[in-house]
Simulated assay, not measured.
Amino acid sequence: MHSVIASPFLEQHVLVRPGSRGGALLPVERYEELRALDLAAPTPPWLANAVQEHWDDLDVTGRPVGDFLLIRQPSEWGYGKASWEVNLGCNYKCKHCYLGLKVNSGMPWEDKRRCLDIMAEAGVLFLQVTGGEPTIDKDFLRAYRYAWELGMMITVSTNGSLLWRQNLLDLFAECPPYRVTVSMYGAAKRSYDELTQREGAWDQFVQGMNAARHARLPLRMSIVVTEDNGHEEQGMVALCESWGVEYEVFTNMTPTIYGGGEVLTAQSKEHLRLRKTFTGCNAGHTFFHMDPHGLVSICKIGRDDQISLPHEGIQGLARLGEIADRLMLRTGGCSGCSIAGTCRVCRPLAKHYQEAKAPLAAYCQHGEKAG
């Protein structure tokens, strides 16, 4: 199995290692040299030096290239990243969840595998696997392994409740993830169980985190601050720091993907923060999202005009750029706005807030000024 990947990434070429955040840019001539190599040939000295420089615990000097290196082929599609909701099912019932109803459904395994093949062909190097809770999906283990064997650098977004399971730990040891992002919903049992609406959730979270830290997984915490746990924000931060785990704090709740506003009641007004000015993104152009049924959209928020990857195949992605450009246009009450250039949310997210009949201040500068 590979321990290093040489791959195109957008308009560049990179050398990356599963389980590691580091990497190196590859000059195009070096990448083409690797593509032309016999995999039984010994490692070129320049490659051995580059590997040693970036990962000093890995010595590939004199080893056959095929023993450790996976060389990904160029793609005409130009997608470098993707996210995939394996399943919307979850073992929690969080009050703030933007997915709304937790429906435990998805594609059969053969369709999942075909979609992963298409992602690889489209050029996807970095894949976020999410849910719902992805680790409860019946196909998670083999889907993760298959994506890893295709040469994807995988981030798993999880609530951490099952990270103590030996089959998961064994998989991550054999096929290291790029990152494991764990959502954190409190610093104590009472608030954590209240927000997740699952008795014993805190105990499972602690058990999972203890196992993950012992296994030295590449962890990152997403601290979610709501009305239930707002008083524990600093406690959650302190816990992450005591674990030596990097973290990011999230305070702004969003409507459900169906435009429902019921989850906005979880918002802590005291902790609401102004978002940074939205300066654009490449959703639909270099990145896409896929739901549990293989329906591709520009991102997790802008889900209009989805493309069925199992039915249309990779050619369906040809329509994604045009869809992205159209969804980003200011329409309805936002068209003709004199300060649209400094909006704090993208148009698809603003549309969700509008459908949810959220307070104007949640997504629009006019509401901020009125408040």
Rank of each mutant, 00 (worst) to 15 (best):
G294M: 00
I314Y: 00
L47P: 00
G19I: 07
A48I: 06
V182N: 12
A187H: 12
P134H: 01
E246N: 13
A187C: 11
M253C: 08
L162K: 15
Q315T: 10
A362K: 04
G66C: 02
G313V: 00
L10D: 03
D38Y: 02
E368D: 13
N91W: 02
P44D: 02
P74I: 01
T61N: 06
L25N: 07
A370Y: 08
W164K: 14
C337S: 13
K357F: 07
A283T: 07
G151A: 14
L295G: 11
D325E: 15
A340Y: 13
Q166I: 11
C299V: 01
T61H: 07
P44K: 06
P18H: 13
C175T: 13
L163Q: 12
L360S: 10
L25S: 10
L47Q: 07
L150Q: 06
L70Q: 08
P134S: 03
I339K: 12
H352A: 14
I223L: 15
Q354F: 09
S222K: 08
A358I: 08
L295S: 12
G260H: 01
P134A: 03
T158L: 12
S242P: 02
E312N: 04
D59G: 13
E368Q: 13
T61F: 05
M1P: 06
K81M: 11
D305N: 14
R216A: 15
P292E: 06
P45Q: 02
W55I: 06
P8A: 04
C94E: 06
G333K: 15
L239K: 14
S75Y: 03
R213N: 03
D193I: 04
D111E: 14
N252D: 05
E232A: 02
Q315R: 14
D170K: 15
A24Q: 12
E368G: 07
T265N: 14
